[in-house]
Amino acid sequence: LQFPLLAWNAVCPLVAKLKRFYEFSLRLENALRSLLEALTSPPYAPMQHLEREQALAKQFAEILHFTLSFDELKMTNPAIQNDFSYYRRTISRNRLNNQQLEAENEVNNEMANRMSLFYAEATPMLKTLSNATTKFVSENKTLPIEDTTDCLSTMACVCRVMLETPEYRCRFTNTDTMLFCMRVMVGVIILYDHVHPVGAFAKTSKIDMKGCIKVLKEQPSNSVEGLLNALRYTTRHLNDDSTSKQIRALLQ
């Protein structure tokens, strides 16, 4: 009996932490939709919005940076789902025995089910933001979809130019700034790909995907492999017929 008790006592604080991140994802979802509304609403064009509301654009970038950082850590830590599965099995077993453990007051069965769906995603935070962006577009039918996609493609372009232009790169004082720009660039590409009818990889896309992938591949592989994987596995249109063989080859 001692080992299960030790395992339970070890896993409960971890589950409480997972709950906090799950609840934070819901706050991020609301924040993202508010930011999209502020950065796309008439009468200004996306570029004007990004120039006029630089503080909001920076907050949008910070959310994307956190999201990609979190998901990279999640993908490399399978223990997260293993621990959570153990927790769910234990509370299910105790319910069958008409017992309730103190930890269930914080993460009950209903909450555990919602968290399980969240952490089952390969990139849970990114999935949350992608769904939020898609929902924002579908609910704002009077707002042209181009206002949203142009905002995202403009941000991707700004990040790419900063990463590939020597005059900008020399201002980066450390690798963290480079990584910040790369994560934001990949984040807006993925959101664009989820809401644009033909996605980010088509020839008609306003995002220079070849340039974006090239600038990623110029960085040390250990710092960008997670970002390249995000483009490979969390976009919607990479495998469409409209995607050129050259772009697919770049991501292999």
Rank of each mutant, 00 (worst) to 15 (best):
Q2T: 11
A7S: 15
N9S: 12
A10P: 03
V11C: 00
P13R: 07
V15C: 04
L18A: 07
K19M: 05
Y22E: 02
R27Q: 02
E29C: 14
L32N: 01
E37P: 00
A38W: 05
L39D: 00
A45N: 04
P46L: 02
M47R: 14
E51G: 06
Q54Y: 08
Q54N: 08
A55C: 09
A55R: 15
L56D: 01
A57G: 13
F60D: 02
A61E: 09
D71R: 08
E72R: 12
N77C: 10
A79W: 03
D83Q: 12
Y86E: 02
R88S: 00
R89T: 13
N94Q: 15
R95G: 11
N105I: 07
A112C: 02
A112H: 01
N113P: 03
M115D: 02
S116C: 14
L117H: 09
F118P: 02
Y119K: 05
A120I: 09
A122H: 09
A122L: 12
L126P: 04
T128L: 07
A132M: 10
T133G: 07
V137I: 14
T142L: 15
T148Q: 03
T149R: 14
S153N: 07
S153Q: 10
T154Q: 07
A156E: 04
M162L: 15
R169W: 01
R171K: 14
R171V: 04
F172C: 01
T173Y: 14
M178P: 01
F180P: 02
I190T: 09
L191M: 11
Y192D: 06
V195H: 03
V215L: 10
L216P: 01
Q219M: 13
S223N: 08
V224P: 10
L228T: 05
N229A: 06
A230C: 13
L238P: 04
Q246Y: 03
I247C: 08
R248C: 08
L251K: 04
